[in-house]
Nucleic acid binder design. Structure first.
Lengths: 155, 155
DNA sequence: ATTCTTGCAAAACCTTTGCATACTG
DNA sequence: CAGTATGCAAAGGTTTTGCAAGAAT
């Protein structure tokens, strides 16, 4: 998806926000790989290393803006910081989180359509999104088993 | 469920931990209403108000202990703090989170059994738990609609 | 021009930790 | 008694905010 930049630019304009170099840089980087779960600090470090002129506060503010604009989703995998991923409307998926190594895998499917319909009806709750996290032990960690507990290095 | 105290006590003993007044008070409070999603600070304030002798650090440490013992689950609803709920093994449920008022509703059902089976097979991932959060607008907020945006007071 | 945005540093939060004291098994 | 657990205050880490300077419409 390469029109993410265009979409974002249009959406921000629509909301009355300005298009700045920093916002472009952030979105451009996210657009390079949609399957990321970056924290604000990680994103900041990457952009800095690329030589972009940007501050950490701006990264936080921009990501929050993007959440508001519906361009990215804010996720919490339980490692104490928020992570962001591009909200790819036509790419519903879920997350498998390994309790051992902390890696996050994507499950590119959406099994929740009927569940949602039934909830909207039963609870009179208008659903705008969902987030399913499944915890467990990934294939690699199971193989490397025997590895006692304690060799967990989250994300 | 009133044997939560007993269960917890036994489990802690099993793990070699001691049974203290503070741990008892915390679990006793959680046992009064299993449908809570308290943050450490909230729990601390409640116990303090009740006149219990306890410190915030102890609340944090005890909750972490309980997570380890599998007695409570640590949840993140995106309001910047961790929340804890009693892990009621035979009461699987999901959470509906209102984007407007921040309230969290419980959906007392587990629709994910087959989904999990298919994941375990397809991904060779050993599932130990899951957490499904569904975001949207609750019934009350829809009724009180017209209420522009901005009247959101999370949790 | 006006309004929005940025960057820095400071502040605000939530959570963890060090250490002396107090308690449990 | 030995080994844990507690409470306080300090430290740590993440996120937010105030404000003057800089950009964008």
């Amino acid at each position: 998806m390469d029109d993410l930049l265009a979409r974002a630019r249009e959406k921000l304009a629509q909301l009355g926000y300005k298009w700045t170099d920093q916002r472009r840089d952030i979105i451009a980087y996210l657009a390079e790989d949609l399957n990321q779960h970056l924290s604000a600090e990680e994103l900041y470090a990457i952009l800095k290393e690329r030589g972009e002129q940007i501050g950490l506060a701006t990264v936080y503010r921009t990501l929050e803006l993007m959440v508001e604009a519906g361009i990215v989703h804010k996720l919490q995998f339980g490692d104490g910081r928020s992570r962001y991923e591009v909200a790819d409307a036509d790419h519903h998926h879920h997350h498998l989180i390994c309790n051992r190594c902390g890696q996050v895998f994507e499950v590119p499917m959406d099994w929740l359509e009927e569940l949602e319909q039934s909830i909207e009806k039963d609870y009179d709750f208008e659903i705008t999104g969902h987030h399913l996290k499944i915890y467990g032990i990934c294939s690699a960690c199971k193989k490397a088993a025997g590895g006692e507990k304690g060799d967990e290095k989250p994300l």
